[in-house]
């Protein structure tokens, strides 16, 4: 199957990808790393809020909600 690199906010609900890179810098970057957003980690889009934003993701056995502004700065590889 073909591999695609997309930003996390484009990962459809129910689909799983692997974190490819974090484009955040500074403190935000550290926070994402602390939560386990490191390259290679599996991440699944879980559900979105009724306003369509933020979206909850499943990563390392936990549920983390992110805004579009932040999830668009995380690259994931899908198959």
């Amino acid at each position: 199957m073909e591999k695609h690199v997309i930003t996390l906010d484009r990962l459809p609900i129910g689909k799983t990808g692997r974190v490819a890179a974090i484009l955040h810098k500074g403190l935000s970057r550290r926070r994402f790393l602390d939560l386990g957003f490191v390259p290679g980690t599996l991440i699944t889009t879980y559900f979105t809020s009724f306003t369509g934003d933020p979206t909850a993701y499943r990563i390392r056995g936990t549920t983390i909600a992110l805004r579009k502004e932040d999830s668009s700065k995380i690259l994931v590889i899908t198959e």
């Binding site: 390392r60 056995g61 936990t62």
Partner: peptide
């Protein structure tokens, strides 16, 4: 339930 992150 989410040991992996806690081990960090």
């Amino acid at each position: 339930t989410c040991l992996e992150r806690n081990l960090n």
